[in-house]
Design a protein around this nucleic acid. Sequence first.
DNA 1: ATGAAAGCGCTAACAT
DNA 2: ATGTTAGCGCTTTCAT
Lengths: 325, 325
Amino acid sequence: MANIREIAKRAGVSVSTVSRVLNGYPYVKEEKRKAVWDVVHELNYKKNINAVHLSKGKTNIIGVMLPTINHPYFSMIVEGIAEEALRYGYHLLFFQTNYDIHKELEALEMLRVKQIDGLIICSHTISLETLELYISDGPIVLCEDIQEPHIFSVYIDHYQAFMLGMDYLIKKGHSKIGYCLGRPTSINSQKRKAAYKDALQNIHASIHANWMFHHCLHMGDGKRIVSTILSLAEKPTALLVTSDQVAAGIVLWGKTYGLRVPNDLAIVSFDNHPISEALHITTIELPLSLMGKKAFQMIYDYFANNYTQPKKEKLPVRLIERASV
Amino acid sequence: MANIREIAKRAGVSVSTVSRVLNGYPYVKEEKRKAVWDVVHELNYKKNINAVHLSKGKTNIIGVMLPTINHPYFSMIVEGIAEEALRYGYHLLFFQTNYDIHKELEALEMLRVKQIDGLIICSHTISLETLELYISDGPIVLCEDIQEPHIFSVYIDHYQAFMLGMDYLIKKGHSKIGYCLGRPTSINSQKRKAAYKDALQNIHASIHANWMFHHCLHMGDGKRIVSTILSLAEKPTALLVTSDQVAAGIVLWGKTYGLRVPNDLAIVSFDNHPISEALHITTIELPLSLMGKKAFQMIYDYFANNYTQPKKEKLPVRLIERASV
DNA sequence: ATGAAAGCGCTAACAT
DNA sequence: ATGTTAGCGCTTTCAT
């Protein structure tokens, strides 16, 4: 494998001249420049990028931490990240953690060992205190509304978004409202629960523990939700569902088991994935791809503008009325 | 940032002893080993992984080339790859190409510049001839049935799978059968078309160009297919659809526009994603996650067994009868 | 404008 | 068992 020394020797110049030519440094005499390129092409030479990484102390690789890539919620974020990364010549290294703390730590360690320049965390179980141990190793972006001053954050205001859904359902005459959330302990879920409680309190409605479903992530979870609701003596008349996938599952399994949407149960869901359109589900659109883009941008700007202070950015949502309420 | 020399100095040993301790090399006196670990912990030292990469000429990173991560077909493959990669301490670098040849080439170049040890290609537009230019740069795995002796291949026999679907539809009394494919030029599509033609020929049925839909990838494509079929004077009675997403779109948009499945149109689709179960769609299950695992395994074995000859492996499919036929 | 040479931080061959 | 040292292939400073 040819290296820069070989090129230098054959072109009759020094390695530094080769390096300058290769990196587009201006002050090189035209004939030397040509000589170098000629040899480079002749040998089909390519830089060893690891040597560049070592020498520069930078890899142009951004890490992406997520529980699983195989879920529309995350793959939409990633799509956004990937699009921006490509534009700026960055690469993406994936850490599929399945919410395993050890795997999450491994991703953070990659920051410390310089395998990645920065890390975008789409979702996590690890504590913020632990995260903070790594802030000096490189920029970290969290897709959550957090206050820690040293961590970047691009987020959806889930309190407001949930409130939007609640208000809509209430305006449509519902007061027996339940919800379906993902992981109940996540920061996003906490915000949603707060909105839920506040909204019910505003209309003096009581809270029913068995109208609150947790760990709802996939279409298949709709089956469980539908059969549980059917077995309930006192049923909710509406559900706020934090994922189009789950909402679709409820609509479809409801059809199978005899729970009609919206007649028996109104639904407002979140995401606005294609499936919600196909099923005519009223949904609150989350700008996930945009979130990915912004997350990358934050890291990019951090390096481009000499390590600026971490930013926080809130993204807008909108309700799309369809036929599930 | 502390380096190995610093550790050596503080622990009162040589750099090679530090290296040996760090890498679990056996012949080190217990007290020196302890001295090293003590300093390592004290300084919270971590190896600079780029230096390791440069020194070893290997990165333990595998590239994954795909058009988009945001599609269940690909995210399932990736999930399989990621699972195996993690088990063996490998990392994944993603190349979202959107079928852009330049981006595909960029992924291949990463192989040449040693940024990645190997490359898994989930789908591509680039020609096999071009691919072959890179086989000396590292192992390449293709998720297609190809013959090139220097490229690894793990694949689904799409001829056989398509034939399975055709036979099933024919056995159920259909002869007016159409299909929905993704990119018509892909190797996988070629195999499917061949099976389609052969199957129709077997029953002396004629081929209708307007029963053959191409570029069907997403749920939204179902809309187009449904309205086209509704406008046809002579309609197919059955459709073989190469994606559950598209099949779901057909079922759902069919419901909206008045094309009933299976009454007006029978459907056999592919993948067996959760949505096909929720919609009771008869589907041919493709072992996509397994395909990802096998793809990674091939690369892993290649390095573990000193650069063995490229293998080819065919994966089984099975038809799951539900209610769309 | 160009070259010499000193790193970057680690691995591994070689010597003892 | 342990240390010395020569790489790995590039970037970058410092001379000239």
